[in-house]
Design a protein around this nucleic acid. Structure first.
Length: 269
DNA sequence: CGCACCCCCTGCCGGC
DNA sequence: TGCCGGCAGGGGGTGC
């Protein structure tokens, strides 16, 4: 679930814990995508949170000893900041208590999430990530050159975290609709104008999604437990069979590189 | 090299 | 009502 706009919304909400010290860590279930290390609670306890950053779909808490607490949310992960008396839920896997009494709860029914603490330079997950889609480095020129070197569906390029970090299935579909490019278009056939439209659409869609505090289909909630609102303005995602708001064509659903893809065959080429 | 297909796991929804 | 298949914001592996 959480793609860039959702993780960015969480980051902004969790900036509220900067300056707080971690008083206690309770790991209720260590079997996530990779098991939480046995040392996790020990190395996190007592640390001061000095910053909250995002890289791609990862949330990073900077700690006072220079290490980093890294969280990935998989499909169904959430991290809420709640009072200590808040009841534990079925899939609450980690409870972090701060020195002001508030608690951070990591909740993840499907357990595809990930968390660990390490030295910044040892976090391999981060080292292999590509450019940030909202960074000027994600330019029409960069996208055009990257695309022309490859022969694959453009949607799979946008979702390839080693090239561009933070886009998932919802936003790749929405961006390609906004850009008027079909998700299955071969990257080798992309024009400079297509690349420019995709980069512009990326900035526009992500900015709009962040302003709407992300998308909540079923699981996603922000740090206060509130859903986002961007799902109400999806143009194509989960809208197969409906009319395209731009041209009136009928939105199609098709599997591309293993993921549901939604597009208007009339105004996306 | 790109993609199809498998896995991880739980929940929900529609069909029967 | 209940069971079953299909599907879901992610990622990683294998093999063609």
């Amino acid at each position: 679930m959480p793609e860039l706009p959702e993780v960015e919304t969480l980051r902004r909400g969790l900036m509220a814990i900067v300056g707080r010290r971690i008083a206690a860590v309770w790991v209720r279930e260590r079997r996530l995508r990779r098991p939480i290390a046995r040392s996790f609670a020990r190395v996190l306890t007592g640390r001061l949170v000095t910053g909250v950053r995002r890289r791609g779909k990862y949330l990073l808490f900077d700690l006072d000893d220079g290490s980093v607490w890294l969280v990935h949310f998989g499909m169904s992960g959430t991290l809420v900041l709640v009072p200590p008396e808040t009841p534990i839920r079925t899939h609450t896997h980690v409870v972090v208590t701060l020195d002001d009494g508030r608690t951070l709860r990591f909740h993840d029914p499907r357990r595809f999430g990930l968390m660990r603490v390490g030295a910044a330079e040892d976090l391999a997950e981060i080292g292999s990530l590509g450019v940030e889609p909202l960074d000027p480095k994600f330019s029409p020129c960069f996208l055009y050159r990257t695309a022309r070197r490859q022969h694959r569906a453009v949607k799979s390029l946008l979702m390839d975290q080693r090239l561009v970090a933070g886009l998932g299935n919802i936003y790749a579909n929405e961006i390609l609709f906004a850009a008027g490019v079909r998700p299955g278009r071969r990257t080798s056939l992309l024009s400079r104008a297509d690349a420019a439209r995709i980069v512009a659409a990326t900035g526009g869609v992500l900015a709009e999604a962040i302003a709407a505090r992300g998308s909540s289909i079923s699981d996603y909630r922000d740090a206060r437990g509130e859903p986002g609102a961007f799902q109400d303005v999806f143009r194509v995602y989960e809208r197969a069979g409906e009319r395209c708001g731009r041209c009136g064509g009928v939105i199609q659903r098709r599997i591309i590189v293993g993921r549901s893809s939604f597009y208007c065959p009339r105004c996306q080429r």
